[in-house]
Design a protein around this nucleic acid. Sequence first.
DNA 1: CCGGGTGTTCGACAGGATTGAACGGACCAC
DNA 2: GTGGTCCGTTCAATCCTGTCGAACACCCGG
Lengths: 257, 257
Amino acid sequence: MARETGTKRIEASERTLEILGFLAGRERTTATEVAERLGIAKSTTHYHLKTLEDAEFVVRERDGYRVSLNLLTMGHDVVSQMSTYQAGKAKVDELARETGELCILMVEEHGYGYYIYDNRGEDAVNFDTAGNRKRLHDNALGKAFLSQVSSERVDEIVERHGLPATTPRTITDREKLDAELETARTEGVAFDYEEQLNGLCCVAAPIRDTQSDDVSVRGAISVAVPASRAQDDYFTEELPRAVSDAANIIELERQDY
Amino acid sequence: MARETGTKRIEASERTLEILGFLAGRERTTATEVAERLGIAKSTTHYHLKTLEDAEFVVRERDGYRVSLNLLTMGHDVVSQMSTYQAGKAKVDELARETGELCILMVEEHGYGYYIYDNRGEDAVNFDTAGNRKRLHDNALGKAFLSQVSSERVDEIVERHGLPATTPRTITDREKLDAELETARTEGVAFDYEEQLNGLCCVAAPIRDTQSDDVSVRGAISVAVPASRAQDDYFTEELPRAVSDAANIIELERQDY
DNA sequence: CCGGGTGTTCGACAGGATTGAACGGACCAC
DNA sequence: GTGGTCCGTTCAATCCTGTCGAACACCCGG
């Protein structure tokens, strides 16, 4: 959706943002390295970095530049204003308490899934989650989301981001993906058996937008469990029911925000 | 530290970043409103927004523009690379488990305190914390930090951000602040009695950088408790000991990263 | 069908972004 | 101590581009 049309862009700003994005993916980096990697004159790079530093988007330390924590705060503020977050936070907490597992709230943007909130129950597995960005095809949250959008939209996303594998079980095949989305659509929940991360399995339910005429999705909610617990009724019945209950309640409450 | 020297900045980029910062503080905003508020021509604003949108720093929705969740992820990535985070995360988890309270890890930047990680124990109070940015004078974390920097540095920060009050008990007086910092320096921990938020009290210890010659600080760690529990030995002895133990261990481990 | 609010395009001009080369400073090896 | 290397910084000239207001196109509600 985003990219090219024929209209004008501000090239200087594009460069500044390119530098910012470049820094974001790295540890501390020197100005000269930025210049070399991006193919910009060293002096030019310097002015861009000064501008970024002035505006407090970038911090300079002994051994190089890095992105400022300001971005974290700005991102956090955006999340706080999202209705899916406002309606979903309490439900995630509750679900984590009840199941004792790790529960996650996701929202889609630019064809990615952003994990905007999580809570760990007693027995929960332990990783970074909140703040992360993931592809949509290799995890339950993403598949729950995709199960609710038009197939053109899926095309668009797959075309943009591909279907890269992160484990041997990741779905890398468009037809296989479609089949799973179909069953997810009928069952109301999506599963993930170590497709994103070895040892981790998930169940997720989409959070739809019930107020607009054509039903649309914004995100999804999930429970993540260690593979050892991903079996029997617990994983195929109990958790799916809990997750989709939670999703339904969020859908209703979301309208109040 | 940051702002003015005589050197050149890239004005177009300054504008782009100004717009981005402006959007960050608001809900969805229309392009024309941005133009009016910032005093930029509507057409110019449009090009800037297109540029930001292209680079996926901003998202356009029906009723206006908003900042992209990309910023959240970028911020999150920065945090993951910080040695204070890497060394402190596990300790915060442990402290939360032991005390049952809310524990927070803070890092300083640009004269602000950024809450980069938290964990809630069983009985913990419940707010947004991680991702937030706070002033340094009105809470235990900030005061623990300030207690370890030169008084010139404190001057600088106070001058830049002032001493605004958020509750009746906030310290708004420079001498009172200095006195508290002095006792924090000797005791090794700082306290906060409902100075930032009514009903909330904290104990915090600074996390120093022990490897450089001149000892410097990077952040602080704290326990936050409801005012009702902020009394007796629990608050004046037990928690301070637990918090400064944790801080010391982090200081040692930080060197490995 | 019109009106008010958007976002969008246009062309012209002035002013700024870009560049390479040259300078200054910190640090390390020897 | 000294030479070398790497970094950031500055400069002045060139060309290009960001800026602007006005005019256009769009969408929605009345």
